[in-house]
Design a binder for these strands. Sequence first.
DNA 1: ATACCGACCTGTCAGC
DNA 2: TGCTGACAGGTCGGTA
Length: 270
Amino acid sequence: MPELPEVETIARGLHKRVAGDQIDSVWIGRKPEPLKSPAAEIARTLERARIEYVQRVGKHIVLTLKSPKDSSLHQWIVHLGMTGRMLVGSADLEIAPHTHLIARLASGRELRFVDPRRFGRLEVRHDGFAGPGTEPLNISLEEFSALFHGRKAPIKGALLNQKLLHGVGNIYADESLFRAGVRPRRRAGSLTRAKLKKLHAGLQRVLKEAIAAGGSSVSDYVDAEGEEGFFQLKHRVYGRGGLPCRVCKTPITKIVVAGRGTHYCAKCQK
DNA sequence: ATACCGACCTGTCAGC
DNA sequence: TGCTGACAGGTCGGTA
């Protein structure tokens, strides 16, 4: 489901609602659960722990937990995959289909992980979590350029590679390439310094604008409060195949790059 | 090391 | 109305 702006929005919403609360007990659904850590380890780590804060790392939500025994810190890491949700609400709320984990909170509310498609993953760590790559919002132009140096993969594929930049997904890859005027199939290593500069700026700008808009709601995305984002209204190419380019009116082209639906303007992007 | 492609799942929607 | 197939915000592992 969500990319960096959506996960950022969800993490901020969760922080506001559950930081300071304590997890009293945990229910984990029947197998196969979407777990990267053993269910018993997740339950052991979550139960009785206090939620210190919630933040985003790449496309992961990281809940920092304080152990009731020795005050040590642990991380509960949630990846939402395509369709995952983290819902906070009253314990009376009906349990939605595909609910895989319920954390009962001392406040009487529940934090639930729901994921129909089960591409999401839950795990716990005890030694911190830095994510697979570099944060696109913080990266300097120099570091950014170095990531793509010598790469033969299409720039779109490189943008999606979480070991390089983490947090960029299909929507924001397409949108940032449009803003930079770069075709998705261009080899990453072939971008000129000027294009890299435009892509670096375009990516950071589109991510910041999307965060400010509460993310993009395509089909079913909602944040921790159940609110839709509205950045989808500002998409210039994503999901606009065949529609006129917002800049030059040329119909937007839709192709497949790196196995993903890819949208671009043949006139604005070279 | 790097890059591609299918697999993993369920839901939805267009077309017949 | 109902069936079928294509497609969907993501990642992973096997293969070349």
